[in-house]
Design a protein around this nucleic acid. Structure first.
Lengths: 227, 227
DNA sequence: TGTACATCAGTGAACGCGCGTTCACTGATGTAC
DNA sequence: TGTACATCAGTGAACGCGCGTTCACTGATGTAC
């Protein structure tokens, strides 16, 4: 390994370490992440962090992209490890939920309230849609295998808009499939956020996983996925 | 009106004004609400605010309770103005969504990420469940009218937990009804938050109301509510 | 009705703190001849 | 191989700012006799 490569590797490691400490700080500060606090934890001058990130927002962006990629990768891996559309759908859901429970503050960062004053740059768009895309692909495969009974999407301007999306990305699928994928994804996000943000306290406390699966099965049924 | 009452009324008006300005500040600062900025906007010394709220957290709590009550009241009113379980369900959903679109930062305050370092006091619990309770009551009425076909709740520990909730609050209803009400509420929250936080950008841009209704109809169907 | 007192909204200075970002700098490491 | 130079991670002080909260106070309004 050349000296230049070594330097680059050390730099990458330091970058990772800063992000790791910053992730830990999300727990206490939320999106109010403090660069100085991160630097303090690393035992370095706050100005040194600027060698790695041009600003606080750039660090936040890196954390956001990492989070989208992490939950997306977890869901993809889980879905890939099972057979059958419904099984993949449920596996993706559980993987996303497991990741969220393990990384609640990162989940809040990407699916909670927008950070005040922070404008997400373009780089976040692609990673942001990995989980939705996974549900879409799962549903598409089931459609192509003829496993989904045809039902109609109630007419309306929104149905036309979804028809355009279908035409652009899934020309062989009806708009209904797109509607169901998005709706299922929103349901997944809603169920996880609600659980994480405390809305199940004092009603379902032991088997939240079971209740989550009930909800994801409901979304799947709505999408026409059956066992 | 006695002088004491006048004093109390002026005090109440000032309290309302502080909350109104604070609500405006939610838009820029999010939950990072600054007492000093609020006081500045009101043209008063920051210390004067302490005559009305013992701390920043207490002001936040007041905003949170007001927000829960506002969206709850809007949903209740909308549901009361129509006949039929499905109609009430949809009316409640649209009212919640309309309120959220009109007050996005308040919606984020109550249904977005928890505010870092803020612990919600007991007073928020009852107002927090108004919308969920409304869906529950709507469903209960439909059950009592024999309008909901009986379906079973897949067995599991979560089903037992929901059975306990049912036994405590709706002894004539099956656990499935509770599961559907909570699930429907989560779907409502998920759909509104997703739309508000930008997840529909570039797919459904014109008729988001129509797509929301599609989702709420899906939740209603899942709950056994038919036209 | 007039006077002494109590209440309480609001002031302004202060305490002690933290923040993001910039800048001139040091010193170690790597590169080119 | 040795030397002059370039690169660049990291320092520490500074700028200019904002924050929540406390405290002794002023002065207007209301109350009791």
């Amino acid at each position: 390994m050349s000296a230049a490569n070594l330097r680059a590797r050390v730099r990458a490691e330091m970058t990772d370490e800063i992000k790791a400490v910053a992730r830990r700080h999300l727990a206490t500060d939320g999106a109010n992440l403090s660069l100085r606090a991160v630097a303090r934890d690393l035992g370095m001058a706050s100005s040194a962090v600027y060698r790695y990130f041009a600003s606080r927002d750039e660090l936040l962006t890196a954390l956001i992209i990492d989070a989208y990629d992490a939950v997306g990768a977890a869901a993809e891996e889980a879905a890939a490890s099972v057979e059958g559309a419904l099984e993949k759908w449920l596996a993706a859901g559980h993987a996303a939920r497991d990741w969220a429970l393990a990384n609640p503050h990162e989940w809040a960062l990407i699916y909670g309230s927008p950070v005040p004053g922070y404008q997400a740059p373009q780089d976040t768009i692609v990673p942001a849609s990995r989980v939705l895309l996974l549900l879409g692909e799962t549903l598409a495969t089931a459609y192509r295998a003829g496993e989904v009974p045809s039902r109609e999407l109630p007419a309306g301007r929104y149905a036309e808009e979804l028809g355009v999306v279908a035409a652009n990305y899934y020309p062989d699928l009806p708009a209904r499939a797109i509607a169901d994928a998005i709706s299922g994804f929103f349901q997944l996000c809603g169920a996880i956020s609600a659980e994480l943000f405390g809305q199940l306290n004092n009603s379902v406390d032991e088997d939240r996983r079971g209740f989550f699966e009930f909800q994801m099965r409901g979304a799947a049924a709505q999408a026409g996925l059956t066992a």
